[in-house]
Nucleic acid binder design. Structure first.
Lengths: 193, 193
DNA sequence: GATATTCTGAACCATTCCGTCCAGAATATA
DNA sequence: TATATTCTGGACGGAATGGTTCAGAATATC
């Protein structure tokens, strides 16, 4: 009878994602990965394939676990504009936490690899589309609730929010303070009215 | 009598910058650099120091040549809000050009290296501060001209513009079409009113 | 105890990498 | 022609890299 798999595949995947998220794809070594995942190189290759395959899996993992939180937030029972504001402030807040100034993983991947790595680019695009979908639902609800202007179509406004959130997180990586980022959040949300 | 330096240092620096801008810091090899710069490895090390030193010089070069264009734009004799709109649309337009979907070099550096590379981070921050300064002047002028609302202070609005522009360019790297990016530009500029 | 599978640490491999050094060529001036 | 500097291509070194393979240990079940 076979020895059952001993490590939690999903947990190892989450650990790998965290390392890629902090260091970037190219700057992450196999040693970084196995150290963070707590498994040997053989097991890693056996389970996940190549470094690049593992990388692609981490993007999918991020979409399954983090991006769906934004999708989930779209259904929070509160005024849509308040949900949007809370999402943005929360993202800024996380940038201020120790060892957490990583921004959005999809953001990072978009900048570092999307142009040259088509496979990664497809996954990143899918994730950003999910974010847009979540914001789209929130904007529509906000427009029904009368808090969000109907001057612009909700699809464009959703893209505006995805873009703005990404921009804010990039600013955060470039050392902008939380106060400054929150100022930008306020103007962004104000733009919806 | 000594042999005069034969290659244009500034042009070589510009070539190096373009390679780092397209590939990213880590994914750019010495071979990539010497090939693009058209000089030998010895000459490169003699003139620019290490690969990392060269990298830092390219960020400074970008600030001197590209970021100052935005500063220059602040003094264009046209309504400020139109200058801002033109800057944004021009940036989006460049994303659509072949082999040009590189986004903003400061953006890319902020995401890839700023958190871990303090020296690069300082330079990136300086460059983004210059962009903010340019937008600050434009917003102030726009407020005087009556086209930009005085509801928000111009410093925050300037940061909002830097952040928004960066977010739009990240979206562009993640395959968003020019039409979609221009929609976001329109909402962004509309937010100034 | 036997069987079957997983996991480990490390050897191994080929390649790539950054950076230094060097002999000789190239160039400009006196 | 002599001198001094720059430039080249490549050798070299040490390190790091991604990936493969393997003997043996560990584990679970029969």
């Amino acid at each position: 009878m076979a020895r059952p798999k001993e490590f939690d595949v999903d947990q190892a995947l989450a650990s790998a994602m965290n390392v890629f998220w902090s260091n970037g794809y190219k700057a992450t070594s196999l040693g970084d990965l196995t150290g963070a995942m707590g498994i040997s190189k053989s097991s890693m290759y056996e389970t996940f394939g190549s470094k690049h395959d593992l990388f692609l899996s981490t993007i999918e993992h991020y979409i399954r676990t983090v991006t769906t939180q934004i999708s989930g937030a779209a259904h929070i029972d509160a005024p849509a504009v308040k949900v949007i504001k809370a999402l943005f402030h929360r993202a800024v807040q996380r940038m201020a936490e120790p060892n957490s100034r990583r921004g959005c993983y999809l953001n990072n991947c978009a900048v570092e690899v999307s142009v040259r790595d088509t496979e990664a680019g497809e996954r990143v695009e899918k994730g950003l589309d999910m974010m847009e979908e979540a914001f789209f639902e929130l904007v529509q609800r906000g427009q029904r609730e009368g808090d969000i202007s109907t001057r612009h179509d909700p699809r464009s406004m959703a893209r505006f929010l995805v873009s703005s959130l990404n921009g804010i997180l990039v600013m955060g990586k470039a050392h902008a303070s939380t106060d400054k980022l929150n100022d930008v959040v306020d103007i962004t949300v104000n733009a919806l009215a």
